[in-house]
């Protein structure tokens, strides 16, 4: 189980690293001449590619973050390991739901 989580955390980081670079790169590139929310939406709405891109991002973040926070809580708080594990499942699920909602809001409308 520990090795599995360790592997998942590394793999999710490896996937996220290029996604973050693209994410930041595009923000900088697209913002050069100013950009409105409406313009962003016109490009992302209905785009399956952006939905997949950010969908993957959200899944990786929802896997990666709780594993890291779990370690921090184990080292820095006296909370019971079981309790931490349960809290991290909830935390991961919350990240996933919030993230998927956001991706849907920005790219939704595809059929």
């Amino acid at each position: 189980m520990e090795t599995g989580l360790y592997a998942l955390q590394r793999v999710s980081a490896m996937i996220m690293a290029p996604l973050i670079v693209v994410h930041l790169g595009i923000i900088l590139y697209a913002m050069r001449g100013g950009l409105t929310a409406a313009e962003i939406m016109s490009r992302t709405e209905g785009s399956v590619a952006w939905a997949l891109f950010y969908g993957l991002f959200v899944v990786c973040a929802a896997v990666h973050a709780p594993i890291g926070v779990r370690s921090v809580l184990r080292e820095w708080t006296p909370l019971a390991p079981r309790l931490i594990d349960a809290a991290m499942l909830v935390f991961g699920a919350a990240l996933l739901v919030l993230g998927v909602r956001a991706v849907y809001a920005v790219t939704g409308g595809w059929s």
Partner: peptide
């Protein structure tokens, strides 16, 4: 060695 108290920490 890679269990709960192991190398991953």
């Amino acid at each position: 060695a890679s269990d709960r108290g192991g190398c991953g920490n």
